[in-house]
């Protein structure tokens, strides 16, 4: 029996801003993990990764990160990814601040 495949998202840092981005289903980049395309098939994930790696003018350091799909969208399974989609814990900076900014 093959090991069950842990669902993944394609993630990277934006070339210009340096902030964390995720690949959407329509091939655009999103700043929100919730909007990322969740990849549940290993072969498909590899193809998406290779495609994203061919866009060095947009992003840096593309990789596949594990996620757990939930009703609210994908959730990180590792603490590092949780920080990447939130921002630092000592200041209200980064994504958490931008998110609030875009809501008001």
């Amino acid at each position: 029996m093959p090991r069950p495949f842990t669902p993944k998202v394609v993630t990277a840092n934006a070339l210009l801003e340096g902030d964390v981005v995720y690949l959407r289903e329509d091939d655009g980049w999103t700043r929100e993990l919730a909007d990322a395309d969740v990849l549940t098939d290993e072969a498909h994930a590899q193809v998406r990764l290779l495609d994203a790696e061919r866009r060095p003018g947009e992003v840096v350091g593309v990789y596949l990160a594990d996620v757990a799909p939930t009703e609210a969208g994908p959730e990180p399974t590792h603490l590092r990814e949780d920080f990447r989609r939130t921002g630092p814990s000592n200041y209200f900076h980064g994504k958490q601040a931008e998110r609030q900014g875009s809501e008001v």
Binding site: E17, G18, D19, V20, G57, G61, R80, R84, H93
Partner: peptide, 25 residues
């Protein structure tokens, strides 16, 4: 930025000038 350098080519150059890419920025 205009695409003539890849990240592999650029990374050592930026590091020589103290520029890292960290978790959020």
């Amino acid at each position: 930025i205009d695409g003539s350098l890849t990240e592999d080519e650029f990374k050592p150059l930026r590091l020589m000038n103290g520029l890292y890419l960290q978790l959020h920025a």
